[in-house]
Nucleic acid binder design. Structure first.
Lengths: 205, 205
DNA sequence: TCGCTAACGGGACTTTGGTGCCGTTAAGAT
DNA sequence: ATCTTAACGGCACCAAAGTCCCGTTAGCGA
């Protein structure tokens, strides 16, 4: 008896999954989220249409799988030993990712999918939790070094770096460039140094 | 000859538009962005299906019109005379808006639509530009009062207040509450006071 | 190497989102 | 009040997304 969970994950099945995920990304970049069509993706992947419908069933579920796949390829975070440098490295990484035609389109699409599809939402939340946890040590170490006030919430600082970049991407037509990334990092750093990210209020002098 | 532009905007036409926009919002809240169907919206609005397809033609265009309509109902900004209070008022307004089931769903949907539909994107960008301009005077006045360093970019400060709220809404399952809003406002204020939002670098002592 | 069966693939079939046609209604000008 | 025509509404039509069925392929265990 094969374990009930994944029954036959090797060989062909894995090959089909890889081809379909790749095709989904390609289609996303070319035609955008709105134009996604499972039939078209099957054609691109040179895979039976039925297969795609059976294994994923919806655009949301497929994008959730794409995101899960992306989450597994984790990039190493910077370790420069200075909060300022670390946050800037993080900001620039996010900026480059969002500005990249392929990755950027992908992220926008998954953000979209997450608002309608529960599976995509779950995958998205896991993805960001992972990424934030990955960078949080930068902040923890800065607190230990005495660069930041004790009690600072590391995750909040990391999120504060990304937030302006995402907000800009979504609500303005302006391009995401390096100066923007550096400003986001600098703003987060200033706020953190001022103690804005401690759970308790900032009324301690 | 009627002026070229809008040819017959009164009476029935306006009534149809109102009914359809209302129906679109209802549908959005009930079935979500992914489930939007122009036929269904026409049924809800008690309007001919053909009419909706002819006047708007796509979900993106319809949502763009919904957003344009929303932009016209502008809420007055706070004028408390203190940067801290003003930014907090702004943050809480955004928080309440995004946390509201109806408005929140609507904003998410329009953000989505903007990433695939050019018309929706344009409407969205206009909307945010308007809102940011509306609140920018808070910051300008704070600069004049000497609360913030000269050269501070007002729009960037206002955006810095909203950004963490949107980021949280999109990337985490956590609810948007008042403390979160207050923290966002406080962080933006700290960063602004530290001079993080001046176009030139913050290396002036 | 062989057998079992999970997973794939092709094609027919159904459902549904979207378009075209044309008669009807009512806004706005005279 | 009357006329013109922009805009609406119903219906038939079309195309394409999604489902079903069943025969075929190939992973995996013995």
């Amino acid at each position: 008896m094969t374990s009930s969970g994944m029954q036959r994950p090797g060989g062909r099945t894995a090959r089909v999954r890889t081809a379909v995920l790749k095709a989904a990304e390609d289609a996303l970049v070319e035609v955008g989220f709105a134009g996604l069509d499972l039939g078209d993706i099957a054609r691109r992947a040179e895979v039976g249409r039925t297969t795609v419908y059976r294994r994923w069933g919806s655009v949301g579920a497929l994008l959730a799988d794409v995101l899960t796949d992306m989450a597994e390829q984790s990039l190493p975070r910077a370790r420069t030993g200075s909060l300022h440098e670390d946050l800037r490295a993080n900001a620039r990484l996010v900026q480059r990712t969002l500005a990249d035609p392929r990755q950027g389109a992908l992220f926008r699409a998954v953000l979209l999918a997450a608002t309608c599809d529960p599976a995509a939402a779950e995958a998205l939340h896991r993805f960001y939790r992972t990424r934030v946890d990955e960078w949080a040590p930068c902040v923890t170490e800065a607190v230990e070094r005495g660069e930041l006030p004790p009690g600072t919430d590391p995750a909040e600082v990391v999120r504060a770096v990304s937030a302006p970049l995402y907000y800009r991407m979504l609500t303005t037509p302006d391009p995401l460039d390096e100066p923007t990334a550096d400003r986001a990092a600098a703003a987060a750093e200033s706020a953190a140094r001022a103690g804005a990210f401690r759970p308790a209020g900032p009324e301690v002098i």
